[in-house]
Every structure is written in C-alpha cells, then in structure tokens.
Amino acid sequence: MNEKLFLRDPEQSELGKKIILHSTQLIHKNGFEAFTFKKLADDIGSTEAGIYRYFENKHRLLIYLTAWYWNWLQYQVSFHTNNIKDPVVKLKMVIKLLATTVEDDLSTRHVDESILHQIIITEGSKAYLTKRVSEDNKDRLFKPYKDLCAVIGNMILECSPNYLYPKSLASTIIEMAHFQNFFMNNLPSLTDFGENKDEAEIVLFLEDLVFSSIKKG
C-alpha cells in the first residue's frame, strides 16, 4: 500500500485493523456522506484523535479502502486466470469476477471483502471524483486501479492484438459492472436486469459488449 495513503499503517496494529473493519461496516450501513471519524471512534471505543493518527481525513481513508480492494481484486484475477491458456476464457473469467457478488476472504479477518465490494459499487467513484484528483494522482494513490486496468487491457490484447482501445475498454468493463449492479438494485428502469435482478445477466451483457467491440477491432 502506498505510504502516502496513511499517516500510520493500519495493518500494523489492532486499532488500525479495527479502523478498517468498522469503517467499512459504517460506510456500508449509512453511506460515506454520513460517515464521520466521531461515529467511527464511538463504534470501536476509541477517540477521534486516535483515528486521526492513522488517516488525515475520511476521504483519504476512502481512497485507502478502494486501493486495498483493487490490490486484492488483482490478486483474485491472477489466481483465477493463472492456469487458463485460452485468452477468451480468461477474459470471461475476469468479467465474471467483476460483475458478480464477492465472498468474504476469511484469510483477511480485518476486511470483509463482500461489504467492501458493495462500497466500491456505491461509493468508489468518490475516491477520485474530486478537485484534488490531479494532486492525488501525482502521489500515485490510484496506482492499484490503474494496475488492474493494465492487466485487463493486456488480456484484451491477447484476444485481439490489433484492438485500438484496450485501456479504455478495460476501465469501461470495471465501471460498467458496478453501474449496472447499482442500477439493477436501485434504479431498475436504467437497465434490462431490474426485473430479475440476476447478476448472470450483467455478465452476459458485458461479454456481449466486450467481444462485440474487440471483434470489430
């Protein structure tokens, strides 16, 4: 994790791990706008000052959580595609990982990835849709997201070496998977999946979008 994301590494103490676990729970329950360090401190039996020793503000904490998720997801992509030789099958596996419900990884007891995935869907774009995005980008705070896009972009090129827009399509897959999931559950008239609320249909839609695009390329 980029050391500029935090003042003190939360992975190195029990309080830090509590901050990560309970902040995801509170953000998921109440939304990022309603989330405060005071509420977090009350929830974990600490003080606001104790939390501020780890994170400069709640937005920096949100960027940390999203970066943590992208790092974890890139590992999942690598793990699930490592032994797949067919580039089409490999890319379909990635689409499935992006568009379907995430299960909690029991090896990371201080992070509930299933909840964190829901935060990425509902709050993730707030990490970079800010006036400070250029400054944060210079500090390489979004590198995990860019790295994941690069991995997916390379898989797209494996399927279609002459395709001109692999990075654009890679980021589109990620964002579209989240938007369609959000719309399906909250604004169903904006999707074709609102009635059945079936993630498998989102997977099929993304496969159609991706492979129709790269076939033209």
Rank of each mutant, 00 (worst) to 15 (best):
M176N: 07
L7S: 11
P161D: 06
F142L: 04
F32H: 02
T81R: 13
F211M: 05
I20L: 15
N30W: 14
K146V: 04
L187N: 01
K126E: 05
L116R: 02
L73C: 03
M155P: 01
F211H: 06
I84Q: 03
G194I: 01
L190V: 00
L148T: 00
R8K: 15
W70R: 09
A99E: 08
R140C: 15
E135Q: 13
L204V: 05
F79R: 10
I152G: 01
L98P: 01
S171I: 13
E113T: 14
L5A: 02
N186H: 13
P188N: 07
K146L: 15
N196M: 15
L97A: 00
K138D: 08
F32S: 00
K17P: 02
D104G: 07
P144Y: 08
Y75A: 07
E3F: 06
F193T: 07
D105Q: 11
I174Y: 00
G194Q: 02
Y163I: 06
M176K: 06
N137Q: 13
I115G: 08
L204K: 12
G45P: 10
I173W: 02
L157T: 08
R60F: 14
I214C: 11
C159D: 02
P161V: 10
I19S: 04
T66Q: 13
G217W: 02
N186F: 15
Y64G: 08
R60A: 11
C159R: 01
I121M: 09
E195N: 05
M184V: 00
L97W: 13
Q180E: 11
L91S: 03
A67I: 03
A99T: 05
Y145H: 12
K126Q: 08
H59T: 05
V88N: 12
I20A: 10
T122S: 14
K4F: 15
L169Y: 01
T172Y: 05
K96Q: 14
V89A: 01
I51S: 08
K85L: 10
L190A: 00
V151K: 15
S23F: 03
M155N: 01
T100W: 07
Y75Q: 10
S78P: 00
L187G: 00
F35I: 01
Y165A: 07
C159K: 02
D198N: 15
P166A: 07
S46A: 15
K167T: 10
H80E: 09
R60M: 15
L91I: 03
F79H: 09
I119L: 12
N2M: 06
T66Y: 04
V111L: 12
M155Q: 08
D136M: 14
R132W: 04
A34E: 10
E11V: 03
G194D: 02
Y145W: 09
L15K: 06
D43L: 11
Y163A: 04
E201T: 07
G124S: 12
I156H: 06
D208F: 06
P161K: 10
Q25F: 08
